[in-house]
Design a protein around this nucleic acid. Structure first.
Lengths: 347, 347
DNA sequence: CTGTTAGCGCTTTCAT
DNA sequence: ATGAAAGCGCTAACAG
């Protein structure tokens, strides 16, 4: 620790008691204006700042919140963290970020560490393979506020903030259909989290509403927990698609990594986009327009999701509402149509 | 705060004194094996975890380190944070990340907050316009370890860890020259930080070593503190370059945002890359290969920089070396040649 | 080997 | 209006 000046020091310097100093700095009514002024001035001049640990210990809270994400090195996540940071900082909460690296085990370790570290609440976007929320639930039951963001789950009851994945997937699929594509493949992740099923459902619904039969062989999922496996699964899937007798004319990808990697792979394998196959996918990178070809995307309001999640958590911590009625908030996504899904040219 | 079970609780339950419990849990030699075992077992069963705040208060340290960066939403930074996180977590330090958003004022606010929050040390990559390091220096003088990473400065004496920007720039320029380009423009940022001048110097040296005269009009800088301004400056610079009678046949860009935006802009303005003009730039995004055309880059060992910076800071905190001899470590960059700087075709 | 005690910096009764 | 004292959970010097 670094900090030097304490209440005691000020008290000594001003020939007052510690409690008088404390009360003055907290603007208590039982201190005379003159004394307050004097103390405040001295404190400012000496750059006094209260010891956070002592205050936290005394008050039983740390004014810090723990954030658990799969990875820092990820566009969408970074933008969400930005939002979380903005709101938390405004409310004078510090955020402590930890990474699960898509490992449920490491995720639990993060949560334990944060809990032991005395955070006032936890904000979490679970690893894609997390299935067991009982530990988190038990923490919540014992009084620790928890809010899910980005990747939601039905396995725990609390505030949840994410994108409207069903609608995003629906819109993306409809976009492809409107642009003349009828054989639409869908590449998703191998997670049980609702984020994946919602996107699949949006995709299916769009097909149904357009009277296009759903072809199970066009729906595939890739192992998202490991880059190696993801690359392998992706390549296998694309090759599989392109060797079908009735092969797809478009792919809708449901995850950041998959979308961008898919474009790279299609290029590498020599397929022309959108000539041989069109592409649209979830991802938030603003580099999508620099791609070859520029990539059509489903864009999530990531910053807003982060902000809102932080707001929900802090309201829970400060118990603005005494009987918390949990809500699930889903923010609208946004289709950014670019060249990779241009109108189908008849051939 | 959340945590419930305390030493007192355990002491009561086991009919021992608080200090016996404390010593047992700290594996003190002055406690009998039996007692230790009993205490440990009980503690584990009850999921005891020490109160971090109390411990920190008592020991005068928080086992947390503050990290100040310009932004979370940035490839290179995210990778560095990843490295910092890895090392810190391994050493049981928590990291508290704050963003300056390229504002020196906000940066100072972050530092103050971290200091007041009782971090054991600060890791900082300064905002590009930061010129005054006196506050940071005063904190360091008063005993708070500080380590600079990524963007270094001569204005403060401490450990510094970054990329070898001179060499990176030199290599990039030589790469262009070897591929047949002779009129090489250089786009940099408007910062005083050494990161910019080193890159300029590397560029100039490469020209000199290749007997190519340096043309001042080909060296320009853009305001990096604001996206609007950056875009404007960038567009102006490119247009300026392309209207010169003796216009450049290649551009070397010295910053992440500039490199990718430059590619987008050149495409938008209708210039062919590398036909009309070649391009190579600093950036770490692995999406560079998906660009149109794939972008040649100078890649920084960002993860390693983060790790090493964290290591240096923690060694300072734990005073492994009593008389700290400050060092500046510069890690090698890596040229990734792609299509945007392919061999010049004679025309 | 175990227990008592003081104190880290702060807030908060409860006196004065 | 000000101050004394207790206590948040923990460690460590000192007693026993």
């Amino acid at each position: 620790m670094n900090n030097s000046l304490t209440l005691k020091d000020i008290a000594k310097a001003l020939n007052l008691s510690i409690s008088t100093i404390s009360k003055s700095l907290n603007d208590s009514h039982e201190i005379s204006i003159d004394t307050k002024k004097m103390v405040l001035e001295y404190a400012q001049k000496q750059h006094y700042s209260p010891n956070r640990l002592a205050k936290g210990l005394k008050e039983g809270k740390s004014r810090s919140i723990g954030v658990v994400v799969c990875s820092l090195d990820n566009n969408v996540i970074a933008q969400m963290l930005d939002g979380i940071d903005k709101f938390s900082t405004d409310k004078s909460y510090q955020i402590i970020i930890m990474q699960s690296k898509e490992s449920p085990i490491q995720e639990t370790a993060c949560i334990e560490l944060l809990y032991a570290g005395g955070v006032d609440g936890i904000l979490i976007s679970p690893a894609c393979e997390t299935v067991d929320f009982s530990y988190l639930q038990s923490l919540q039951d014992s009084g620790l506020p928890v809010v899910l963001f980005d990747r939601l789950s039905d396995q725990i009851e609390t505030h949840k903030v994410g994108a409207d994945n069903f609608k995003g997937a629906y819109d993306a699929t409809i976009h492809l259909i409107k642009n003349g594509y009828k054989n639409i493949a869908h590449l998703n992740t191998n997670t049980i989290l609702s984020i994946a099923t919602e996107r699949v459902n949006g995709y299916k619904q769009a097909l149904a509403d357009s009277n296009i039969p759903f072809r199970p062989e066009l729906l595939r999922s890739c192992d998202y927990s490991d880059t190696q496996k993801l690359n392998a699964d992706l390549e296998e899937s694309i090759k599989y698609y392109m060797t079908l007798e009735n092969k797809p004319d478009a792919i809708f990808t449901a995850a950041d990594q998959i979308s961008t990697k898919c474009l790279v792979l299609l290029n590498k394998l020599g397929f022309s986009i959108p000539g041989d196959i069109a592409l649209i996918g979830f991802t938030n990178t603003d580099l999508a327009e620099a791609f070859s070809p520029s990539l059509s995307t489903v864009h999530q309001p990531a910053f807003e999701i982060g902000q809102l999640a932080a707001q929900k958590l802090i309201s829970l911590i400060e118990r603005k509402n005494h009987a918390p009625e949990f809500e699930t908030i889903m923010l609208e996504t946004n289709i950014k149509a670019r060249s990779s899904s241009d109108f189908k040219t008849v051939n």
